[in-house]
Design a protein around this nucleic acid. Structure first.
Lengths: 206, 206
DNA sequence: CGGGGTATTGAACCTTGGTTCAATGCCCTG
DNA sequence: CAGGGCATTGAACCAAGGTTCAATACCCCG
């Protein structure tokens, strides 16, 4: 998010893009406009945005399909839908898929800005969480496969003796591996390893 | 949920209640009908339901307000909205508040039944989780205040030595307390204590 | 082929946790 | 007051984890 929140606009009507861009610029946001879902997908790697304002009905990929694709990719980008031909089933689907809001044109400036504030707040939460997770993930990736396997036993509460026999090796090895695990992860206690593994999606063995 | 899934209907139109009741009975559900939100609130303690079909616009408390009240009370009852005068903002609000679906009258039997199947599946998930949690909670409540305090240190990864000095007592006490904690909770390893405490909302000390 | 990262193994030592005896003091309730 | 539940304490012992030495073996990459 740097200092200036950046909002991505995806809409196939150039007039709508222009108008929104003017409004949001006046409100102090940085804006990046995309004429279609595929254009966004091509450019969003280089032109990052903090949240999206998305039209539903567009030629090519629809807004809902774009949302789905972003979700599958794990992008977790807050989305505000803004559409002229919305109906209730669409809005239900969008919100269930995690959209921040689902607004219909014409929209008041106040409604749009309120939704964007909510979206940006959510973006900040995501980014904070991602920063923490990225650090943990980096440390996790520095573990060797064997160490990861031992970790999965440790967070299951297994004794070194049990881990050794499960892995077909000796207890001393497990001790060595555990020492390296706690060193690499910077987490000296089993309790913290359990919590970190949970956040990283590491499943305990068994 | 017993054997027969029970569905609560809340609608102010008696004709609608009748029609729905007939449909759902034919599908093998048990049905309990309520003519208003307040009638449901009065009777739902004794006449439990597994999920709710809820009209939005009713005299007195609206469906959305009833949903909000149930949420505040922590009821976690899956809700399918079914309404004649729905609009997009309503549906957004309902889904954000956790509704399973938001359907508009007239509704096809297939749509309603699909929504109810989803709602009942969610109800089962809630009930399973609640059963597990209730067992843990019971064991947790059997801990003395002192043992709970020790537990909060243990799941923070503290050593007995540190816990003792933090609580102004000796290391032997902590060992005794830990022994009783693991016995009462039935969880021999620190790893499992951490996970159980997390689910119960017990915060580690510090 | 040589070297680096990884996995393994043994030994010895210390720290910590877990368990079991037994006993004391406090506080609240019947 | 008597009894029960709770917190505490000491001693002693065993089991388990943590640490540090050192050495061997495997495998892949340059």
């Amino acid at each position: 998010m740097n200092i200036l929140p950046t909002i991505g606009l995806v809409d196939d009507e150039p007039g709508m893009l222009k108008a929104l861009q003017r409004l949001l610029n006046a409100e102090g946001f940085r804006v990046r406009a995309f004429g279609s879902a595929s254009e966004f997908l091509q450019r969003f790697a280089s032109e990052t945005v903090d949240c999206l304002v998305l039209d539903v009905s567009m030629p090519g990929l629809t807004g809902l399909e774009l949302q789905e694709q972003l979700n599958r990719a794990g992008a977790r980008l807050p989305i505000v839908f803004l559409t002229g031909q919305g109906d209730i089933p669409m809005s239900v689907r969008a919100i269930k898929a995690g959209a921040v809001n689902f607004l219909t044109k014409p929209v008041t400036d106040a409604d749009l800005l309120a939704a964007l504030r909510a979206a940006l707040a959510e973006a900040r939460r995501f980014q904070d969480e991602n920063r923490e997770l990225a650090e943990l993930r980096k440390q996790l990736d520095s573990l060797t496969p064997r160490e990861l396997e031992v970790l999965r036993h440790v967070i299951a509460g297994k004794l070194n003796k049990q881990i050794a026999s499960a892995l077909g090796t000796g207890e001393q090895n497990i001790k060595v591996h555990r020492m390296r695990i706690t060193a690499k992860m910077g987490l000296p206690s089993v309790a913290e390893l359990v919590r970190a593994a949970e956040r990283l999606g590491i499943k305990p063995v068994e």
